[in-house]
Each structure stands twice: as structure tokens, then as C-alpha cells.
Nucleic acid binder design. Structure first.
Lengths: 215, 215
DNA sequence: AGATAATCCGAGTAAATACTCGGATTCGCA
DNA sequence: TGCGAATCCGAGTATTTACTCGGATTATCT
């Protein structure tokens, strides 16, 4: 047949088995959060899902496949949440600063919801190409959604709005992630948000580099 | 005695054994780069170091201890390299933009030197508290070194230079890391540097947020 | 040289864990 | 109601791998 690193041997056809698959993914999220990726065994996951290991391996060919499916589900809902925030920002037609604030807060709250799971997945689990692609796609979606709003704003006039949007997404992703997981000194949540917004706002409204220093 | 999660059973006293320890760390760097953390077994490391497993466990109580020692060595040299760059920037007494450019380039080249090792350590290996502390200290060192230079510049007037320095360090760390490991579309290295510098420069010279929008 | 300490060795062990398989159970449908 | 397909089960296996230990080898010092 094929490599089958991700395709299950059985596909869930009835409602019963679809619920099983969902239960397994829910359980995986809990187990990985509590015990990390390496420490979260497939037996743990099956037990937490109230299912036997056999059933688990009916629908997932291996442990990595569970991870990938979990991440896909997780990122999809994350993108939805952030896009919702952005949509409401668009309707209220606020300033650029307001828009960025909503974006940062949305990203921050995403990380705050399940910090341990996020840590297990991003800092401990293997990164098969499927996962990587999944992350790229999420970033692409967010960047695109953001770019649309940036183009509508009259406060920004960027040469390359696409790249700028990507940088904004990457920066807020990284900064909020780090803030949640290690913090900065005595900086409070509110102050962090202000600072991040200031950074992004400054970037988007800044003039190009001075000619002299460009390489 | 004590927990002994990191203390070895024997301490290297003669030159011979000190060379062994170095060889083991060198080998660990190579092995982790090529095979990842999970895939890089202690037997692999010992073999690559031209040493028996027994000797390895004479000086490292467990696999994690090797990782921690390796990271300590790696981060220390990294801080040195970046600080060297900064020192030369100080002597040439350039503009803020020039300073930031040197900083970004230094961070970027650090990541470019051993991308696989960096990936294995940061995205696959366990993160015992000792590692975490080590990273915090590195960030602290860099932020401090940078802050000194920022305070000397007449282009910046920040309310809280400490926090700003930390944000700059975290941002450049995250952006350069991501650029090396996943890139951005068609953005070239040179263009990425320009953009990162523009972002940091804008942040450091930006006025405070407008009163209205502050939470 | 002799004694003691340090270093090195590597076959072997114990434990962990991803994954299998053949059969029992339950569902969908005629 | 009965039959085939889908689902579920869980004790067992095969493999991997971190780590041990008792002894051989080499250095240091007097």
C-alpha cells in the first residue's frame, strides 16, 4: 500500500466510533498537559478516554498520528477564536492601536487557556512534517486575516503588507507564548499587553530605514 | 546524601578525564544534531566520543545531566559571541540602527551555526528547571549588555529601559530562530534583517501609547 | 618500584512502552 | 430476526534504551 504513517487501519464510520475518536483526542490533550508528551503513554490516553488501547490503535496507526490530529484540531479552533476577535474589531471600526490590542489579547488568552498542553506539544513532542505544515497554515491564515484589516486602516502605508502581517503574527505569537511560560520580571499582564501593542504599532507606522544603513 | 539529579558520582580530576568530559559534550552536540534528543542514545554519544558508556556514566549521572551541561556550555559561548559583537559596535559608536543591526546579525548567525542542535534542544528535549534557569540567565546577560548601550544612545528615551531591553532580546531571539527554521515566503536573509531592525528601531524610538486606548 | 587513587571498560540487566491480534460485542440493515 | 460489518477489548509481546558493576588499565606520588 503506502507508507501509512498517519492513515488509520480503520476509519470511523458510525457515530459510536466518531465519539471514540473525539474522546481519545480529548484525553490526549489532558494527558499530554499533565504528563508531557514522552510521559503520556498511549495506555494512559486510552484509559483517560475510557477506551482500550486496542480501540485506540484501530483509529490511530501510532502515537504521532494522535499528536498530529490533536494539533490540527487545536490550531483550527485557535484560528477561529482569533478571527472572531478580529471580526468584532473590524465592526467596531476602531483605531489601529485598538485592533492590535485585540489581536494581542486574543493570542495571549489562547496561550493562557492551556499553557501546559502548548508546552508539551511545542517544546517536547516530535515535529513531523505534517505538524510543521499545520503550523505554517495556521500562521498563514492569521496573517491573511490581519493583512486585510491592515489594508483597510488609513494609519498604515506599508510597502509589503504581506511580510509585515507575517512579522506581526510571528512576533505576537512568540512574545505572548514566552510571557505566559516565563514572564518578564515584575511586568504585569496589562503592562505586557501595552508594551507589545506599542511595539507592533510602532513597527506598522514606522518610516522605512534610513538609506545609509541599509546593507 | 542529596537528590543527585545532576551531580556525577566521580568528578574529573586529571587532565585525561577532563578531556573525556569535553569529548562527551562535543559528541553529544553532534549526535543530538543528527538524531535528535530522543533518538540520540547515550550509547551513541559514548561511541561518537570514542569512550565507553561506563566512562560516560562516571561523569554524568544521567542523560539529562549531559543535556544541561551541553546547554550551559553552548549558551555561555553564545553570550560571549553576541557581547563581542556589541562591544565592537560600541567602539565604532554608530547609530542606534547600526547597533540593532549588529545585534540582529549576531543573533541570526548564532542560530545559523547549529540549527539542528538548537532545534533538538529547544523543541524536543525535556526542560528541567536547571535548563530553564540557564536560559533565563542568558537572556538576562544579553538584556543587560544591550541596556547599557541603549542608555548611552541619545536616540532613545525610554521610561523603562530594562523591560525594553528584555523585549528586544526576546523578539530578536524568537524572530531569528523562526526565520532560520521556517523562513518567511520569499523573504531573503538581507530583507529579513532590514525588517527586524526596522521593527526594533521603531519600538525603541516610539512615543508612549495614546492615553485613550490604555486599559 | 610499589602503593594508592583515578580512569576506563563493555557485556549485561531491568524496566518501560508502543503496538498486535484474535475473539467478543454491538450496530445497521434487509 | 438474522447476518455481516463495524466496533471494542486487553492480556501479551517485542523492542528499545538508560543505566550498573566488578574488574582491567593507567596515572600520581613517595
Amino acid at each position: 500500500m503506502q507508507d501509512d504513517r498517519l492513515t488509520p487501519r480503520k476509519r470511523p464510520r458510525q457515530r459510536r466510533s466518531r465519539q471514540t475518536v473525539d474522546a481519545i483526542l480529548d484525553a490526549a490533550a489532558r494527558v499530554f498537559s499533565q504528563r508531557g508528551y514522552a510521559g503520556g503513554t498511549t495506555n494512559h490516553i486510552a484509559a483517560a478516554a475510557g477506551v482500550s488501547v486496542g480501540s485506540l490503535y484501530d483509529y490511530f496507526p501510532n502515537k504521532d498520528a494522535i499528536l498530529v490530529a490533536l494539533v490540527e484540531r487545536q490550531l483550527a479552533t485557535m484560528v477561529d477564536r482569533v478571527q472572531d476577535h478580529l471580526r468584532s474589531a473590524r465592526e467596531s471600526a476602531g483605531s489601529l492601536e485598538g485592533l492590535l490590542r485585540r489581536f494581542v489579547v486574543a493570542m495571549l488568552s489562547v496561550h493562557e487557556t492551556q499553557p501546559d498542553l502548548y508546552h508539551a506539544v511545542s517544546a517536547e513532542a516530535p515535529h513531523p512534517p505534517e505538524l510543521h505544515a499545520c503550523v505554517l497554515q495556521m500562521e498563514e491564515s492569521l496573517a491573511h486575516a490581519l493583512e486585510v484589516l491592515l489594508l483597510e486602516s488609513d494609519e498604515v502605508a506599508l510597502a509589503d503588507s504581506d511580510t509585515a502581517a507575517h512579522l506581526v503574527v510571528q512576533t505576537s505569537e512568540a512574545l505572548t507564548h514566552r510571557f505566559v511560560h516565563q514572564g518578564i520580571h515584575d511586568v504585569t499582564r496589562e503592562r505586557f499587553i501595552d508594551e507589545a501593542v506599542r511595539l507592533l504599532h510602532a513597527y506598522l507606522t514606522a518610516p522605512p530605514l534610513t538609506e545609509a544603513s541599509v546593507t
